[in-house]
């Protein structure tokens, strides 16, 4: 931009004779255009900043805490709820969601950070009822330590597909864990997150992380009410039924 002022001056000289014809009328026009133009630029920058902040907004990354001494590795404590509730998400109170526990608080995030080449112990409180799997194949546990999970203390390697409420699946790590739902007849069903005290199932499993990387995880149960195939809305919005596992 260094050469511009001189350039500008020269052109002014060169065209000064010709400018007379349009001169007076145009300079006011120029002022108006400039005024409008700078307003547009300021507005544009503001809109640009808004768009950039929208595009880059993601749930906070939750670092898994160290597991209690005998087991080693790290601990993730999760829960699934049928409705996230107005306290967490006023715009989508009815959406189904995962939550994660950090410092004794339930946080609405699905991006977790775990160390590479280690064991991650997951404790999952399942507060949602069953919806059934679209592909019953995914009712079998795969890729966890021992290829099993424990549901309310019972160790199993598959569940009846129609009882699935959600799944916790990291396809690139080969981890497939079906999560059976709370029976419909159970009393004290949870309404909104956080559901502490309501009817639930406690599910635990462990998996090994591999190489460093950013892996996605998701639910495979058609649990998004009102959407085609049950796979819209919360099933396709980061922070509800999808997330990242950052292996660092």
């Amino acid at each position: 931009m260094g050469g511009f002022p001189g350039c500008l001056w020269r052109h002014r000289l060169a065209s000064s004779g010709e400018q007379v014809e349009w001169g007076a009328q145009l300079s006011t026009l120029a002022k108006k255009v400039l005024g409008v133009g700078s307003a547009v630029v300021v507005l544009g920058v503001l809109i640009g900043l808004y768009v950039a902040s929208w595009a880059t907004s993601q749930p906070n990354t939750i670092v898994a805490s160290a597991a209690p001494p005998p087991s080693g590795g790290t601990q993730l404590t999760l829960e699934t709820v049928a409705a996230i509730g107005p306290k967490y998400e006023p715009s989508h109170p009815d959406w189904v969601s995962y939550l994660v526990r950090k410092d004794n608080k339930w946080i609405h995030s699905t991006i977790y950070s775990v160390p590479a080449n280690s064991v991650v112990h997951v404790t999952l409180y399942q507060y949602d009822g069953d919806s059934g799997l679209r592909n019953p194949f995914l009712s079998q546990v795969q890729g966890t330590v021992g290829e099993t999970e424990t549901v309310d203390g019972k160790t199993i390697n598959s569940i009846p597909p129609e009882e699935a409420s959600h799944t916790f699946v990291i396809p690139q790590l080969g981890v497939f864990v079906p999560l059976p739902g709370v029976p419909e007849e159970a009393k004290n069903q949870c309404e909104f997150a956080p559901c502490e005290g309501a009817a639930h199932r406690t599910i635990t499993f462990s998996f090994r992380t591999g190489k460093k990387g950013r892996y996605r995880w998701q639910c495979f149960v058609p649990c998004a009410a009102g959407y085609i195939d049950g796979f819209g809305g919360p099933m396709q919005t980061l922070g509800y039924m999808d997330g990242f596992i950052n292996v660092v």
Binding site: G48, V51, A52, W54, A55, T56, S57, Q58, G213, R214, R216, Q236, T237, L238, D242, F244
Partner: peptide, 24 residues
């Protein structure tokens, strides 16, 4: 065009980092 710039910024990395997957 600005959308394209954001898309190309994200594609600097082989995994999603800069923008969220929905927003991408």
């Amino acid at each position: 065009g600005l959308n394209a710039m954001l898309i190309r910024t994200e594609l600097l990395h082989p995994v999603p980092t800069f923008v969220g997957p929905n927003q991408y």
